[in-house]
Design a binder for these strands. Sequence first.
DNA 1: TTGAAAGCGCTAACAA
DNA 2: TTGTTAGCGCTTTCAA
Lengths: 336, 336
Amino acid sequence: MDKQTVTIYDVAREARVSMATVSRVVNGNANVKSETKDKVKAVIDRLGYRPNAVARGLASRRTTTIGVVIPDVTNHYFAELARGIDDVAAMYHYQIILANSDESNDKEVQVMENLLSKQVDGIIFMGNFVNDAIRDEFKKADVPVVLAGLLDDHEAQPSVNIAYRSAMNDITTRLLKAGHKDIAFITGDLNHFMNKEHRLLGYQDALATYDIPYDEQLVFQGNYDYQSGYELSQAVKSSKVTAAVVANDEMAAGLVNGLTDANVKVPEEFEIITSNDSKVTVITRPQLSSITQPIYDIGAVAMRMLTKLMNHEEPAINNIVLPHGYIERDSTKKSV
Amino acid sequence: MDKQTVTIYDVAREARVSMATVSRVVNGNANVKSETKDKVKAVIDRLGYRPNAVARGLASRRTTTIGVVIPDVTNHYFAELARGIDDVAAMYHYQIILANSDESNDKEVQVMENLLSKQVDGIIFMGNFVNDAIRDEFKKADVPVVLAGLLDDHEAQPSVNIAYRSAMNDITTRLLKAGHKDIAFITGDLNHFMNKEHRLLGYQDALATYDIPYDEQLVFQGNYDYQSGYELSQAVKSSKVTAAVVANDEMAAGLVNGLTDANVKVPEEFEIITSNDSKVTVITRPQLSSITQPIYDIGAVAMRMLTKLMNHEEPAINNIVLPHGYIERDSTKKSV
DNA sequence: TTGAAAGCGCTAACAA
DNA sequence: TTGTTAGCGCTTTCAA
């Protein structure tokens, strides 16, 4: 039950070569005669030698480990991002230290410090917004940090996203085209950059195109979870709105169920379009029409971008925007 | 952008003490005069010193990192387990290396090797079964491994679970009591130990109590996901069964939706009880009646158990069984 | 193609 | 209470 016993030194001795040579064959260095390579490999197998990544990390100053901060693994949107990240990380032989932040200021800072002290080679940060404390951590980090599914206005932190403004414009426009005049915009905290400067603007863009004045009474702020969507359904029902665009699937699922439970028929009496096309959209009844976004790919591309950054390659673009689409399901009336 | 610059040596020099003393204050060793402690702390703050966990790990042979192997973060049941694990890990100042295995033999082995080479202090393993190759890895591991939400028959690997057999007995009995004679048992691969030696037996126990002969035609094997549940709904519909117990929520969600789409009314014409009480059970319509199990706690307790094992304390019990319950929702007729 | 040797930044005896 | 000194297991010059 005690740790690691056979070291590179043991292998060297048994194979009658130096540590340096063993190191070379382990690392696939070409400068080794193929005979000695075979000899060393045989000894490695025989002894069951497994290189100590910690020692290697200390000596080489690279840990092949990256940090991933996630608000909550339990949230499907973020879990899907994480899956994309892990898959390409594995592809490049990186391991992932995952840390839940709950989007709490203190935890986020704590977690960043932990990651940095573990000497991760890079960090992928997920969340709904970047506050000042975290922005400081990014600055203090001596390794690259990329944002996945997250945008910050200050200084261009590398990031991967879709065009939230245009996506929100698209779905609002669909509802407008369908004849709705009073459309709710259901989102997270409006102080959050992505909501205020992207999604809300997209919603307003669409309204403006149809000469409908913006009414802030029709904006509902939740906190991104099912429960808050469910609770919001009350207020939504008693307002004058006849349709809603929702920034987040969990809230949309709460909304559709809350409405249904309050005997509002979706889509006949109320239409809903959501934003993430995550798994819940097909589980609710009616299923949710949604913006489609390549969530897995956002994670994957973010990780790919990070590998470049860690490799000191300058990526062509610092803020990658992936394409989005739309899928019609049953929370909207069939389009003709 | 280059790694760590200020070391314990810099702090020692600036504070005019030895490295050992700095190490002591960093590690909260009591044997330091409070004046010097303050002096050192001041220097640490001024220089922005952050201990290098890699060097520390090499010197102390403890990394305060544990490995977590998960079939797929994207699956809510496992994500919930992972959340429980991470929360108590954080509480004990451990970080988590998370690795997706897809329950593929090769990946699982690969991932275990990676974890071991990173010198994790312990491992928590999740999945639906333990195959021989993995069992070997457990044996090779020089650190404790605990199973979360997973049971293996060979040699008692420490684990945390609920009593699957009794839980399955409970819900089958409920359906029997409600008058059903032909009840489907919908599960994963029957070669998997937990299905064959626990869940199936529970199902059979209930049948036996009601003198109903076991009919293997009523056993349906899926692969644990929504899609397979949805597809199974065809076969289920065209069989003679009038109710089903399901081993897994994702399959149950697929089943209820498949049945509904095929115009079978749940619960009026068909009753369903599922097993995990995860988030999807309240998102489907009708909502799913379910065994309740403390998923988060299973993860949390598994991690707590691991801390003890890593600390060389022998836990009182090696295979912890947490209590389960039942919640009636709308996929069963109201009980009187 | 191979080896010798100096660290990487820290912990942990052991002394003082 | 504090300092000295070996390592921890590996990578990486630099020589040979």
